[in-house]
């Protein structure tokens, strides 16, 4: 339990710094940036305290906001996906989630991709609609959401595969 906490604290700090110093400055084809810092929310242990989880997600988003000068858009998006996570977990993993024994390392790959994808699209949609904050620019929002989601999804899967422990 203790190592789990330390693990999460390290993840929190490293992901924020990586987002601020590396991923915010990728600017692929002029303006596409990935946001893999939400891996913290995606991989947070399921059976933990939900209130704490939502609060931590808010802090995560707020720190990224401070680094990227974006008001509160990341915080809003992070809090929303943290709140919406349980139903999406149920949808993506079905029965295993019901028994509260889920471990992301030994779930099926396809299920994990679907789970990542839904949360990433939700996060990016909220993020960009708040950031652009203009209904007449809805096409710009959708375009940014699409490109960034693909980018984030690929990075999230790569990172989670690279850093997962082998289960033998």
């Amino acid at each position: 339990m203790n190592s789990l906490n330390i693990n999460n604290i390290i993840r929190f700090v490293v992901l924020i710094l990586a987002q601020a110093l590396i991923f915010n400055h990728i600017n692929f084809i002029d303006s596409v940036n990935p946001y893999p810092y939400i891996l913290f929310i995606l991989l947070f242990p399921v059976n933990n305290n939900r209130t704490l989880f939502i609060f931590l997600s808010f802090m995560l988003g707020l720190f990224v906001d401070i680094f990227s000068d974006s008001g509160g858009v990341h915080a809003a998006a992070c809090v929303s996906i943290a709140f919406a996570r349980p139903p999406i977990l149920k949808f993506a993993f079905g029965m295993i989630y019901e028994h509260q024994t889920i471990k992301f390392n030994n779930t099926e790959f396809g299920n994990r991709v679907i789970y990542f994808l839904i949360l990433i699209i939700l996060h990016h949609l909220i993020l960009f609609s708040l950031e652009v904050f203009n209904i007449s620019n809805i096409l710009l929002v959708l375009k940014k959401t699409l490109f960034s989601s693909v980018f984030t999804l690929i990075l999230c899967i790569l990172i989670s595969v690279l850093f997962s422990k082998k289960q033998r």
Binding site: T51, F55, G61, G71, G72, V73, A75, S80, F83, L130
Partner: peptide, 22 residues
């Protein structure tokens, strides 16, 4: 409903910060 209430509170705080930054 403490999780939902916390969610609503934090969500409105972040929306307020967003609007303020505009």
């Amino acid at each position: 409903n403490k999780t939902s209430l916390l969610f609503l509170l934090l969500f409105f705080v972040s929306i307020a910060l967003t609007i303020q930054s505009h």
